[in-house]
Design a protein around this nucleic acid. Structure first.
Lengths: 95, 95, 95, 95
DNA sequence: ACTAACCGTGA
DNA sequence: TCACGGTTAGT
C-alpha cells in the first residue's frame, strides 16, 4: 500500500497549512516592527537606545511576574511541608 | 532646563508603544501556533515531525530562491576567484 | 521566630553557590566552543556544516533511520494534491 | 578523485574533536548540577525554590549589567549627536 | 540579536 | 504521560 493521500493526510496538511499561515503573519508583524524602528530613526531617535528602553520595560514586567511566581512557589511549598522557611536567608544570600 | 516632557518625548513614547503592541500581537500568534500543534498532537500527529516537515517546506521554498542566488554567486565567483571549501572532506569524516 | 541565620541557611547558601559555580564553568566551556568555531571558520571551514557533522555524529544511527522513515511517511501523506516532492530530496537535504 | 585524507581533513577532524570534547565536559558539569540539586532535595530543600532563587540572582546581575550598558549607550549617543535628550521621558515611559 | 529546536523538570 | 520553561543552537 503506497497510496498516502488518505484522510490523515488531509488533516495533517490542514494543520500544517494553518501553522504556516500563522507563521507568515508573525513574519509580517516582525517586518512592521522593523519599519517602526526605521521611522523612528528617520525622525532622529537612536534605535539602539529604543531597544534598550523596551528591553528594560520588559524586564521590569518580568520581574514583577517573577515575584508573584516566587510567592506562589513559597505558598505551595508551605502547604506541602517542604523546607522553605529560610526566606530571609534567601534575601541575604542575594546580597 | 530639566523639563523633558516635550514633543520628542511624545513621539518616542508613541513609537515605543507601537512596537510593544506589535510584539504583543506576535506573541499572540505564537500562542496560536502552539495551540494548533496541541490540537494536531491530540489527533495523533507527532509535533516534532511536523516541525521537521514545515522546516523542509520552508527550505524547499528557500532553495528555489537559492538557485537563483547561486547562479549569481557563481557568476561573481568566476570574476572574483573565491576559495572552494573542502566539502568532500566533511562527508568523509561523517564516516 | 524571625531569626533565619541558622544551619539550614548555611546549607542552602552552600548548595546554591556550588550550583552557581558549576554553571559558571559551563558558560566558560560554551565560550571555548564558540572560539573553536571561530578558529575553524578563520581557517576556511564552514561552521554551519561543522555543526551538522557534529550533530550527525551525535545522533544514534538507529534513531536517525527511524526518523527518516517516519518523515518519509509523513511527507507522502501530505502529498495528496500538492506538488510531488521527491523523497530523495528529503534525504539529501537531511544529510 | 575521491581521496579525502588531506591536510584540511586532519584540521577539520581536530576542530571537531575539540568541540566534541568540550561538549562532553559541559555535559559532565550539567550532571554535577543535577547531583547537587538531588543532594539539596535529600536534605529537605525544595529544588523548585532553589531554581527560583538562582534565577532571581542571575536576573539581578543581568539588571545591573543592563543598567551599565544603557548608560554606555547614552553616553555614546550624546557624543554621536543622536537624539537622546529625553532621558527623563524614558524613565517616565518606563512607568 | 532574534528565533526556533531541544531537553529536563514538574504536574 | 503530557505540558511547560529554560537552555542552547541556528540564522
Amino acid at each position: 500500500m503506497v497510496n498516502t493521500g488518505g484522510i490523515a493526510g488531509e488533516q495533517l496538511r490542514s494543520f500544517i497549512e494553518r501553522i504556516e499561515r500563522l507563521e507568515e503573519e508573525k513574519k509580517g508583524l516582525a517586518e512592521d516592527v522593523k519599519e517602526v524602528y526605521a521611522q523612528a530613526k528617520a525622525t532622529g531617535f537612536d534605535p539602539k537606545i529604543m531597544r534598550k528602553v523596551i528591553s528594560l520595560r520588559k524586564m521590569d514586567q518580568a520581574d514583577r511576574q517573577e515575584q508573584e511566581a516566587l510567592l506562589d512557589v513559597y505558598l505551595h511549598a508551605i502547604e506541602g511541608g517542604e523546607q522553605v522557611r529560610p526566606t530571609a536567608e534567601v534575601v541575604a544570600i542575594n546580597e
